[in-house]
Design a protein around this nucleic acid. Structure first.
Lengths: 201, 201
DNA sequence: CCTCGCGATGTCGCTATGTGACATGGCTCG
DNA sequence: CGAGCCATGTCACATAGCGACATCGCGAGG
C-alpha cells in the first residue's frame, strides 16, 4: 500500500491526492488492528496525514468510512431490476445474483475482513442495517417504476434481501467454499419451499 | 400527568419511585415536542427530576429510552413459536398475529406517536432496525430449539418479519383502519403468491 | 507576469455523548 | 442501634461532531 506517488517533477502539490481514499484505508486498517471503538477519528485522520476536521468534511461520521461502496452496489442492483422483465421476486434475485458476480466474487477476503470488523461493533451493525435498508428501498422504487404496486414491490424486495443475507452469511463463514451466486440460487429455492403452502409440520 | 404520589404519611422517601418510568415518559414527551436531536440527555433527566448520570445507569444510551417494551414483545413471540406445532413460516406468522392482538391492538395511537418520533430520526431508525433484528434472532433461536436447521429457521423468521413490517407500515399509516392481525394475514397471503413459483411477467 | 478568487485543508472553540471514581444518606437487616 | 447496602448525585474527562475563520497552491483573466 501507500506509494501514492504523483509523478516525478511535480513541484509538490499543496496536498497529497485522494484524501478520501487515504482516510478509508486508514480507517479500515485501524479498525482491524485496534477495533472500531478503540480507534478515534483523530487517529484515522493522523494516519492519513490529515486533520480530524477534514475527515468530517468527507464522511458524515466515523462509521461512514467503512461504507463507501454502497452506491456502486445500489446502481448495479437497480440497473438489473429495471432492465429485466422477470416476475418481481425473480427480478430481485437476478439482481443480487448479478451483483454477486460483478462486485463480490473477486473480493471474498476483503469482504470477510470487512464483515469481521462490522460483526465486532454494534454501532457498525446498526449502520449496516440502515445501509442495507436504503439499498432495498432503491430496489423497491425501481420495481414500482415498472408499474408494480407498493406492497408487491416491497415484499419481493425484502424477500430477495432475506435470500441475499442468508446466502451472504454462508459465503463469508470461515469454512464455506461455494460461490455466492450459487448460494443465492439455493437459498431462493429454500425460501420458496418454506413460504409456499401452509403444509403440515 | 405527574401526580405520582406515594401515600399520605410516608415520611418522604429519599427518592421518588420509578425513576426508569419517569425517564421514559420524559424522553417520550420531549422527543415529541422538540424532536430527538433537539433533546439532550440532561433535559430528559431534569424533566424527570434526576441527574444525567442516573439516566445512563438505567439506559445504555439516549435512544434506549424509547425501546423498553421490546423484552415483552420478544417473550410473547418466542412463547407462541415454541408452543405451536405449525410449519415454521406459519408458526412465525401466528406468533406475530398473536402479539399484534395482545400487545399492539389497544395501543394504536401510542404506537403511531412512537412511530412518528422514530421516523424523524435516522439514529432512532438504526436502533429500531437493530432491535427488530435481535427480536427476530430470538424467534429464530426458538425455531431451532424445535429441531429446525438454521437456514430454515432464519428464512421462516425473516419472511415473517417482512410480513409484519409491511402490515405494520399499513397499520400505522394515517388512513388505515383495518386491524393489524387482519393485515398480517393479508400480507402473508400476498407474500406466498409472490415467492411461490417463477411465474411469467 | 501579476493578481485575484476558488477550493481543499487546517485551526480553534464549543456542545453533547457517554463513562469512571468517589460522595451521600435513607433503608434494611442483624 | 449500628453496619453496610444501594440508588442517586457530583465531578472530571475523553471523544464525537460541527460552526467559523484562516491558509495558501492553483488556475483564469488582464
Amino acid at each position: 500500500m501507500s506509494q501514492r506517488d504523483i509523478g516525478y517533477h511535480r513541484p509538490m502539490a499543496r496536498w497529497q491526492p485522494d484524501a478520501r481514499g487515504r482516510l478509508e484505508a486508514a480507517a479500515f486498517e485501524l479498525f482491524r488492528e485496534r477495533g472500531f471503538e478503540q480507534t478515534t477519528v483523530a487517529d484515522i485522520a493522523a494516519h492519513a496525514g490529515l486533520d480530524k476536521r477534514t475527515f468530517y468534511r468527507l464522511f458524515g461520521d466515523k462509521r461512514e468510512a467503512l461504507f463507501s461502496g454502497s452506491e456502486r452496489v445500489e446502481e448495479a442492483l437497480v440497473k438489473v431490476v429495471a432492465e429485466t422483465d422477470a416476475a418481481p421476486f425473480e427480478a430481485v434475485i437476478a439482481a443480487f445474483r448479478q451483483m454477486a458476480v460483478d462486485i463480490f466474487a473477486d473480493r471474498r477476503e476483503l469482504v470477510r475482513m470487512r464483515h469481521s470488523i462490522i460483526e465486532s461493533s454494534p454501532e457498525l451493525q446498526e449502520r449496516e442495517l440502515r445501509k442495507t435498508g436504503a439499498l432495498l428501498a432503491a430496489v423497491s422504487a425501481a420495481l414500482r417504476a415498472k408499474g408494480l404496486d407498493e406492497t408487491t414491490a416491497t415484499l419481493a424486495t425484502e424477500s430477495g434481501g432475506t435470500v441475499f443475507r442468508v446466502a451472504y452469511a454462508r459465503w463469508v463463514a470461515p469454512d464455506g467454499d461455494a460461490s455466492l451466486a450459487d448460494l443465492i440460487d439455493e437459498v431462493a429455492t429454500e425460501l420458496r419451499a418454506i413460504t409456499s403452502a401452509p403444509g403440515r409440520r
